[in-house]
Design a protein around this nucleic acid. Structure first.
Lengths: 111, 111
DNA sequence: TATATATTTTGATAATTCTAGAAATATAGT
DNA sequence: ACTATATTTCTAGAATTATCAAAATATATA
């Protein structure tokens, strides 16, 4: 993970609508949600939704799988785990007291 | 935590320079870093740094404490913990399989 | 009060991004 | 081939954001 990748992922999650979309996919699990289902759920125009999904795709935060004419979107759980790690895993290492007393634990695995 | 707050925090972390500044504070621990120390470390103009710090402050991601003429900045560990929780804590709850098999654990405490 | 240090605010420009309607594309069924 | 459904791309305007030099502010010390 590098700072540009992490920042682009944060930025992708930095608008309420996109964050809502992403969290809907986090909640949906491995079944995912189709673009159409998301559009109904989110109540936004298809073109706007499509742009948001593209942003999340480019940031590697979601994946898409075509099933005939519908496109299934899923959260990429591995990438958000890496992002969280990048954010906090170096906690306190520059402190004169070290990080021995820091408890840092981020785990996320979905079956 | 609501979606606007979470999105504004994500957005604040969504630029490489601000993410770098924030991670430097995460590493610094409770001692924090002065604005001047950050400026030297990051090698950016003071006015630019000040704007970035203001953005991080408004998002409640950092705190500032004045010590005479210098201003000590510190990461707000509690708020990033809440942000991470907001992102993933509802993992898979809408799945037909439920979230029983999801392991979600985010802990971050710094002494 | 005068000076020095630390930091913020102002102001202006360039660049990016959000939004959504309209048109285009892709896939499947009749 | 024609139609229907699902989704994307094109296009453009409005709004927001990043950047930094210069001026202003805040605090401490001589």
């Amino acid at each position: 993970m590098n700072v540009e990748t992490a920042a682009s992922q944060m930025e992708a999650l930095g608008k309420p609508k996109r964050l809502d979309i992403y969290r809907a996919l986090i909640r949906a699990g491995k079944e995912g949600l189709s673009v159409g289902a998301l559009q109904e759920k989110m109540a936004i125009p298809g073109s706007t939704l499509s742009h948001h999904l593209k942003t999340l795709m480019i940031a590697d935060l979601i994946t898409q799988e075509r099933q005939a004419t519908t496109l299934i979107c899923r959260a990429n759980y591995a990438s958000v785990k890496q992002l969280i790690d990048y954010l906090v895993c170096e906690c306190c290492i520059d402190s004169s007291q070290g990080n021995a007393d820091c408890e840092i634990n981020t785990s996320l695995t979905c079956s």
